[in-house]
Simulated assay, not measured.
Amino acid sequence: MNEVISTLLNHRSIRHFQDKPLTEEQVKTIVACAQSASTSSFIQAYSIIGVTEKEKKQKLAEIARGQAYVANNGHFFVFCADLHRHELIGRMENKDVLPSIESTEKFMAALIDAALAAQNAAIAAESMGLGICYIGGIRNNLDEVKKLLKTPDRVIPLFGMAVGYPEKITDQKPRLPFAHIYHENEYEQDEARFLNQLEEYNQITSSYYDKRTGGARKDRWTEQIGEMLEKKSRMYMKDFVQKNKLDLH
């Protein structure tokens, strides 16, 4: 097993960081690795905002409902879908790009570009001995995030990434079994088989939580996800995206 595969297979979210900032060289390396990710048709429809001001990090932590590691880390990155620069390109080249920019297809391309860049950044950081944690909680109030980060129309802050030197390393959460994720040639639709796999996975996750918490939790995965999905969350998102002149067609 090579070092890249070892790094990937050893991923886990880190939520406790040392009080030690990343160096400028580390930040530049992580961003350069993010930019080396594949991008749809070379469109590069994303931007990364590094947040270093304590007040802004604290505000983002509050928006994320008190996640302390949003404020306390070595560096905080915010990954954005960004088609603002492409609107400017249209003006530069005297091309009618707005129908394309405002399409669902280009919005999806921007989302995918940002996700690919972020995962490259995560792998780069972990290969340097750093820990990372993705932060979707900034989407709890994107109006406030946009004000805080001063993002223009056609730019959507998607998620944050806390990066830093691990203070505490937690156990790795078990993932769904290979056979439940990987389909060959066509989507497996044997429902009974699916349900059996989920029941087996429930036993694995329940044992994981039981061991990790000393018996305080014994969550089954389907129970946990079912309860999460039953609660409506961030239902304003479609209106917010369209208000920012994306995904209109």
Score class of each variant (00 low, 15 high):
249 H>L: 12
35 Q>I: 00
118 A>K: 02
234 R>I: 11
114 A>S: 12
113 D>K: 02
243 K>Y: 07
165 Y>L: 08
107 F>S: 08
214 G>Q: 07
128 M>P: 00
39 T>I: 11
218 K>H: 14
212 R>S: 08
150 K>A: 15
44 Q>Y: 14
225 I>T: 13
172 Q>L: 06
58 Q>C: 04
229 L>A: 10
115 A>D: 07
194 F>S: 14
171 D>T: 05
217 R>T: 08
95 K>Q: 14
186 E>G: 06
133 C>A: 10
187 Y>I: 13
122 A>V: 00
68 A>M: 09
109 A>F: 15
232 K>I: 11
23 T>H: 03
220 R>E: 15
240 F>I: 08
233 S>E: 14
115 A>E: 09
118 A>S: 12
7 T>S: 02
142 L>E: 07
118 A>M: 10
6 S>H: 14
45 A>P: 02
174 P>R: 10
165 Y>M: 06
240 F>T: 08
247 D>P: 00
16 H>S: 12
102 E>N: 15
159 F>N: 00
45 A>C: 08
199 E>N: 09
2 N>V: 11
20 K>Y: 04
230 E>K: 14
43 I>V: 13
148 L>A: 09
31 V>L: 14
80 C>I: 00
36 S>K: 05
50 G>F: 08
213 T>D: 12
90 G>S: 04
53 E>D: 15
247 D>I: 01
43 I>Q: 11
91 R>V: 11
34 A>H: 00
101 I>H: 02
230 E>F: 10
91 R>K: 14
87 E>A: 13
135 I>C: 10
211 K>P: 09
239 D>V: 14
179 A>R: 13
37 A>M: 01
39 T>P: 04
181 I>M: 13
17 F>D: 03
118 A>Y: 00
1 M>A: 14
187 Y>W: 13
132 I>C: 00
106 K>F: 13
11 H>P: 01
181 I>A: 07
80 C>E: 01
33 C>T: 04
55 E>F: 01
131 G>P: 01
90 G>D: 03
218 K>Q: 13
31 V>Q: 04
66 G>N: 01
49 I>S: 03
85 R>D: 06
183 H>L: 09
151 T>K: 03
51 V>T: 06
76 F>I: 04
82 D>A: 08
93 E>K: 13
151 T>Y: 06
151 T>L: 12
141 N>F: 04
38 S>D: 05
89 I>R: 12
201 Y>P: 05
237 M>F: 09
233 S>K: 14
159 F>G: 00
98 L>S: 15
16 H>G: 06
105 E>T: 09
218 K>C: 05
5 I>L: 13
